[in-house]
Design a protein around this nucleic acid. Structure first.
Ligand code: FES
Ligand code: FES
Lengths: 144, 144
DNA sequence: TTTAAATAGGACTAATTAGTCCTGTTTTAG
DNA sequence: CTAAAACAGGACTAATTAGTCCTATTTAAA
């Protein structure tokens, strides 16, 4: 469903959201450590998220990443998934037909479209800030 | 969500179900052609499905694959997915934690588990024979 | 009985995804 | 002003998934 890059990206973003609520910057080591994700790969993904305007970065000593308050307020999971994996999740046919449509539906189309809509809706309505709150209350975890 | 192998496997099985209702054998070329899937790769997947008892094969000239009537009667998509991709779809954490559980839930767990349950339920309750009927009525298609 | 059509299966190659590493630049602290 | 801590980004390597190809075996038909 999600690529590894996207999994790491979501974990990184949720962690950063938690830190950013306390106005803390985090560097790549802290971020990767929190989700035990590979450090260098996480750095790549953070660059991508920074280019997409999802996270902000401060260069130089004592620098790091954070999420701007007004971005965080509205930031949802679909934005992260789309920034990293593109829109395949919304457009692809579950059986690999060249595109999912009502005009040339695959055998699973009618059953899958309901689920796809729920996935997209869930991603779209889930705010990173809610997830960060759960994390802060130790109701959820970024690693085992 | 599904591997390419699984996509081809499902398409092959639905096609075979349609053919088998008319007591027709199909060879790998016909099966791959119907779903425009790569021939040699489809052959591999059919071998796997044959070892799993989902399809049956007849060797030699005029041979091919088919699905036994009593298998087809109850055959659902989850059986095919499990035979090819294993049970990852039911057991994996959407954020890549080592396993999905209520005890160490990831930030997406509570929202994702609902969707996962619906996916698994959909796969489990969808009979290949229904899909084959839709295909037969040209309501659905295996390629564009 | 030979030949050709077919599956079975292993070894291989190609493509994609995952992940590392190095070099450059920015910035702060000493 | 210099050193060290950090991000930026490109080039590379590793692992996994996707896909091919060849050889052996089976079997029906000519
Ligand atoms: S056509 Fe296959 S999922 Fe819509
Ligand atoms: S723990 Fe992540 S989906 Fe259940």
């Amino acid at each position: 469903m999600l690529s590894k890059a996207c999994e790491y990206g979501i974990k990184a973003t949720v962690f950063l959201a938690q830190q950013s609520k306390n106005d803390l910057l985090s560097n790549v080591n802290e971020i990767a450590g929190a989700g035990n994700s590979p450090v260098a790969f996480t750095a790549k993904i953070l660059q991508q998220l920074a280019r997409s305007g999802i996270v902000a970065s401060v260069k130089g000593a004592q620098g790091g990443f954070y999420i701007e308050k007004n971005v965080l307020r509205k930031l949802n999971l679909l934005q992260i998934v789309t920034a990293i994996d593109g829109d395949a999740i919304t457009t692809e046919c579950v059986l690999g037909l060249s595109h999912c449509s009502e005009i040339n539906p695959c055998p699973m189309h009618s059953k899958y479209k309901v689920i796809k809509a729920e996935i997209v809706n869930m991603l779209h309505t889930t705010l990173v800030s809610e997830l960060a709150d759960d994390l802060d209350q130790k109701l959820t975890f970024l690693k085992n």
